[in-house]
Design a binder for these strands. Structure first.
Lengths: 185, 185
DNA sequence: TAAATACTTTACCGATTAGTACAGTATAGA
DNA sequence: TCTATACTGTACTAATCGGTAAAGTATTTA
């Protein structure tokens, strides 16, 4: 039989988009099979734990992406203000200017939240602490840095919801610009 | 047979909590039957359109609640600043200090978003315009009022997500206090 | 080239899904 | 009290769900 996919890692971004579009429960194995081009046999070969393992793998990939492209730059860049600015740009790109939802945020509101509690919690908590660290290095005291970081993450998540709900991608870009202003002044 | 529920309207709040807890797809008819104490026969008697009609009825009830308790007071109260302050209190109560999610926001991220596009859109759009109207009557120009209103609704939705994700109800109260400050200064 | 491993296809399982049909019972109005 | 309507319980459908089993075919390793 023809080999369709060489690497398990190639499937994960496809799974991510499926979960974004249909949610965890709505992402049936038939949809997954259709969009990945893989039969059930192959899917359970790569993910013996079934849908739950697929979603966990997606969340893990999201986590490493943010660690590499958002959290670590915030913690380690020489210029913290440039790193914060860079974060805002990376976020706009990642969420396709508000046309793409945040899977972790969606899971947090979904009934699967209990199955992925820790991964969801870490995502937001890591983001907050990394951003607060950059803000502190930019001159804010600990309390103010934590407050500003929390506000920014809130604005991102809320902006994604409203942007999606109203069908206005520009809303998200506006919210990000506002958030960046508040972080840098 | 014993009559269990007198009014269709009595069931809707129960349905709302079920959808909040399990999502639209996750709210199976067996769960709904169990929590409402109604058999399928009764459920389809009250809601011939099935789950979709149930969810639509819940969204409609939410809309009228916000119209009566949030939007209209914002539009019509003599003292707009007091009305804004009242809105913040009502919102904290309604969402149980962040322990309760916003069903409309959850639907906006879910795969049912396409089935209830208009009701979701109206919810956020009505909220924005009502709050902007109050802000204008409080002295802001149209552009600034619209900007502040959008920011506030964003903070509410984002606050609910983070509060839920991190398991910190105090986060939502903090976000609401911040939002109120920004609206009233 | 031969054997071991990696991947795929197909067929199947029991459980659950939303929804329908309909007979039966309770209630309300005349 | 009789009748019409409102409501409920039970049984049923066809479809789909996530998951399993196992035989078959590639690909890699020795």
């Amino acid at each position: 039989m023809a080999r369709t996919v060489a690497e398990r890692t190639d499937i994960i971004p496809v799974l991510a988009e499926i979960f974004r579009e249909h949610g965890f429960e709505g992402a049936s194995l038939s949809i997954i099979g259709e969009k990945t081009g893989l039969g059930k046999g192959s899917l359970y070969h790569f993910f013996p734990g079934g849908k739950e393992e697929m979603a966990a793998a997606v969340l893990h990939e999201i986590d490493t992406w943010f660690e590499n492209n958002v959290y670590r730059p915030l913690r380690e860049a020489q210029n913290p203000r440039a790193a914060i600015s860079g974060m805002c740009g990376a976020v706009i790109d990642y969420f396709h200017s508000g046309r793409r939802i945040c899977l972790v945020g969606a899971f947090a509101l979904d009934n699967v939240r209990d199955r992925f509690t820790d991964q969801i919690k870490d995502y937001f908590s890591d983001w907050k602490t990394a951003l607060a660290a950059a803000l502190q290095r930019a001159g804010h005291d600990e309390a103010k840095a934590s407050e500003l970081a929390e506000e920014a993450v809130i604005s991102i998540q809320g902006g994604l919801i409203l942007s999606r709900a109203l069908g206005e991608p520009t809303l998200f870009e506006r919210a990000m610009k506002k958030a960046e202003e508040r972080l840098l002044t």
